[in-house]
Design a protein around this nucleic acid. Sequence first.
DNA 1: GCCAGTATGGCAACCGGTTGCCATCGGTTT
DNA 2: AAACCGATGGCAACCGGTTGCCATACTGGC
Lengths: 329, 329
Amino acid sequence: MDHTDGPRPRAVTIYDVAREAGVATSTASRALSNPGRVSERTRAHVVAVAERLGYVPNRIAQALPSGRTGLFALVIPDITNPHHVGLIRGAEAQAAAAGHSLVLADSQEDAAVELAHLRRLASFVDGFLLVSPRAPADELAALLHRHPAAVFNRPLAGLPGVVTDIDAASAQVVRHLAERGHRRIAYLRGPDTSWADGERHRTLAAHAAEHGLEFAATGHHPAVLDSGAPAAEAGLATGATALIAFNDLIAIGVLQHLERLGIDVPGRVAVVGADDVFGASFCHPPLTTVTSPAELAGRALVDLVTGTAPDDPVLPSELVVRGSTGPAR
Amino acid sequence: MDHTDGPRPRAVTIYDVAREAGVATSTASRALSNPGRVSERTRAHVVAVAERLGYVPNRIAQALPSGRTGLFALVIPDITNPHHVGLIRGAEAQAAAAGHSLVLADSQEDAAVELAHLRRLASFVDGFLLVSPRAPADELAALLHRHPAAVFNRPLAGLPGVVTDIDAASAQVVRHLAERGHRRIAYLRGPDTSWADGERHRTLAAHAAEHGLEFAATGHHPAVLDSGAPAAEAGLATGATALIAFNDLIAIGVLQHLERLGIDVPGRVAVVGADDVFGASFCHPPLTTVTSPAELAGRALVDLVTGTAPDDPVLPSELVVRGSTGPAR
DNA sequence: GCCAGTATGGCAACCGGTTGCCATCGGTTT
DNA sequence: AAACCGATGGCAACCGGTTGCCATACTGGC
């Protein structure tokens, strides 16, 4: 019984309800969606008829005049990243609670794909939730001109957003390593289109300088597990005793590669990640990382785009010390 | 510049294009969406004008007469599960390739929520992708009456679907354990509304019998990490030397609990999972599990619901032996 | 130069709701 | 009894596209 071809069987419309109830369509409409406008008697009658006929309003038809669908697009650079999964979950939950739904769009770390998604979905959705968008600011602004949007981890002029407290996180990471006696640290960079990567780079360098540590950076590396091997190699080549990865995916990849090489973690080199994704607590050794309240961020994005939250909150982010960091050799 | 209240600024419509191009709206419409129907000269002209004005068709308006939005609802019992993440990714990719988009709906393992999602999204989407649906078959059938749908891991009369080859997987698991000398095995059950759980239970029991093994089952356990502790306790209480968890989430939770208890895996007890999720290869010890081609399943669901794939394929599923299983003590 | 046939463009209806405005009705007030 | 008022219900337009059908213009054949 699949109706993949041909039009779907016709559903009950408000015209059917009105006819059956013996009232005008306007009255039927008001009885259902603007109850104060008709008498209680008619309202009850129309509702009863609608119920009996199994009437369900056609939301496309409702959306046409109002322009509101109750749909929001969630645009993500990489669905694969477990960190983003937390954000999806939070956003979905918050949207559902408000009677909205999310349309999912994966831009595969590609600015062009991202912009294409915005264009394609623009007339369908009431707003956009942009997770670390990769496209240039001016092109984003041009496309978002007539839509509300909320942005995660990238300040964009005129758009509300949430960011994680990258500076505070970097400060904690550097202090932690300095206290353990590390004198030379390396940052394994993430995607070059990532604002967060730039921030981590900048703030790590600054805090390293404060502590009098030598600082090196390698990359950019794609934010995937497979970047672990090249990132580890590049990191080791800098002579650092502590490797700070852009995120946990890369960090876990680094751990795997170091294990293959027989390099002891944290004995010979310390490794730090970011995001505290699923798996960070039970990889080998458990990963010292920086939390990122992804679920909270997802909820905040929905609140921002629906106008029920203050602008630009900074989400707390803090160091979780596990087994992958220890005293410098 | 957020337009969260008040109507959005008016966009360019096809009427604007037609007027500007000096043709009738019907001609403008055909020039853009039915090019064979107008002369090349007018087509080019209209297209140029549309381009210049920045015209983007209003997809809601397009959807109203046709009833087709190009949106498909992906209904999932639990977005949190990394296994489902793979499926989401596959489905999203395949949908995007065909110019469609996905609306995400998390039913939180709750049949009522699941049905509510179906009702709420019905008039918006062209079809449903149901991942291990939890609701009773008759209620699903009633709601899906006028919509195509494709189902993952649950045969439903009249609906196309894909399932993983649970029987083959169970056979491999039991043989593997029997060969290692295990004589008594226990299955740590998943959610009672899960069809896959019933199948795993049935097939594991059957294959255990074939091999002359004693078989016990515990649960139902929710399919989350935190089920690990109670599931491990219940499993150990059966006296089994091998614990087969409903999925990797539970299995990893079991590993963590056993580690806390100081019980050696695989020395004292073997643990097997299912799904081969992110993390299964690097938890401690690495988990012996059964693959589930989630991404493939996601793609297949999209193909099924758009009518571009054969019905009811069985997806291969096979054992990956890692460190969590070994010879019986 | 006339006619048939085809290519092209336009009118208007339709998808299924919502809503501004007007007509009517019943009940009060004077 | 006339005038007035608020409550209620209906007509028709509108949201922005697509499409069936008809009119016209243009083509080639004789």
